[in-house]
Nucleic acid binder design. Structure first.
Lengths: 219, 219
DNA sequence: GCCGGTGCTGTGAGTCCGCTGAGAACCTGT
DNA sequence: ACAGGTTCTCAGCGGACTCACAGCACCGGC
């Protein structure tokens, strides 16, 4: 099992290297975000341990870029626990697990093993709805077998709808979860526009409007 | 057992953290409503301890949003206020239990344990009354199996009635709770109009008039 | 039967909500 | 630098909704 540890504090980095090596992992170190991203891109790691506070490129940025490049290597984020948004952000950006400093080494090991175990059952399941099909692993969407090209926002909006069928979703919630975690700085109209795009590409019957409340995946 | 404590007073927050940790819980803290909501959304908590008076987003808002997002994590509300309406409010918005400050720590612990025990039978979110059926998750209303289209006000008025069966509700209270929290600037006649709409769509036998007092859901 | 009070409902004006086309700003790859 | 795609805002439109008004219906007391 090959791990990449991205951590700028030398003491911490060496301690992790020593411990994880002793527990049978092969460990590579990177001391900043840029180096970590470059290493992770090589695609040879079974998991990445990623500090949030890094000089230059933050851990958030690293995992966000990896995901946008279709790199789904398991990522565990590590951060000093201070900001209220930390954990939410990390998971939003595509980390698979999250650990706050100070942490117990045994806990880290357990969570890491769980992460690797989880990952070994191969990829996230395909989401289906009527003749629509979305594969989170490849980010591919097909309608009645025909591939449909979606932009990033369109895709993520659709994925959110498919992950929450059978319930009404408000525009505010969509702005929170699909757009920015803080959900501010966007107009509700933006959601309307993107729902419009999806309807144009996938048929107007897919997403139902619930006036005064939001949208819902049609049955 | 993992708990989320949402509390803005640092002293209180730390005291709770210390006590609950000593009693074997894993405790995360959030200092305001927005952070609390973000954390609670992650869905990893066995229960949430939620202060009502929070800067920004109030505890009421937090639990309301969680429920509207289909998140049924057990929530215990904590508030300095102790008016009879407060308690009703908290429970209305979807809290599972309610505690008023100042409270005894032992009481908190007992109620919390009871809450966690109770949780094994999940709460049914669908409201029923005779052959009427209202699902808050989808905002869908069916009468004898037939879907009924309601406008926003109509729906919210009906939901309020269904959440308060077996009691007379004054027009003033409805204006307070369904219309504007301030309840001013509306005529009582508005309620009459909307009750009329509901009767037309759902049958005249549903909502009984209590002359001089208000309305009541028919038995 | 008469009367005051209360509730019901048809009408219509104004408002709000959601949809869409157009276009500015911004990336990204060539 | 340029072209093509993407993101997001804006303005305008049409329709749904909200609510006040006013007159009518109903109820209860005399």
């Amino acid at each position: 099992m090959r791990l990449l540890v991205v951590e700028d504090e030398a003491r911490m980095a060496r301690a992790l290297e020593r411990g994880l090596t002793a527990d049978g992992f092969t460990v590579d170190l990177a001391g900043n975000g840029v180096a970590g991203l470059a290493r992770a891109r090589e695609g040879q790691y079974d998991a990445v341990l990623l500090d949030v506070m890094l000089p230059g490129l933050s851990g958030y940025e690293v995992v966000k870029r990896l995901r946008s490049e279709d790199n789904w290597v398991p990522v565990m984020m590590v951060s000093a626990k201070d900001g209220p948004y930390d954990q939410a952000d990390g998971l939003d950006y595509g980390a698979d697990d999250y650990l706050t400093k100070p942490f117990d080494y045994v806990v880290l090991l357990a969570r890491l093993r769980a992460l690797l175990r989880r990952q070994s059952d191969p990829r996230p399941p395909v989401l289906n709805h009527a003749d629509l099909c979305l594969d989170p692993a490849t980010r591919e969407v097909t309608l009645a077998g025909e591939a449909v090209a979606l932009s990033r926002r369109e895709y993520e909006l659709l994925e959110f709808f498919l992950r929450h069928p059978d319930r009404v979703i408000t525009k505010t919630e969509l702005l929170d979860r699909v757009w920015d975690a803080r959900g501010v700085g966007y107009e509700p109209n933006t959601v309307e526009v993107y729902v419009g795009y999806l309807r144009r590409k996938l048929g107007s019957g897919l997403i139902a409007t619930v006036r005064g409340a939001g949208y819902r995946l049609a049955r």
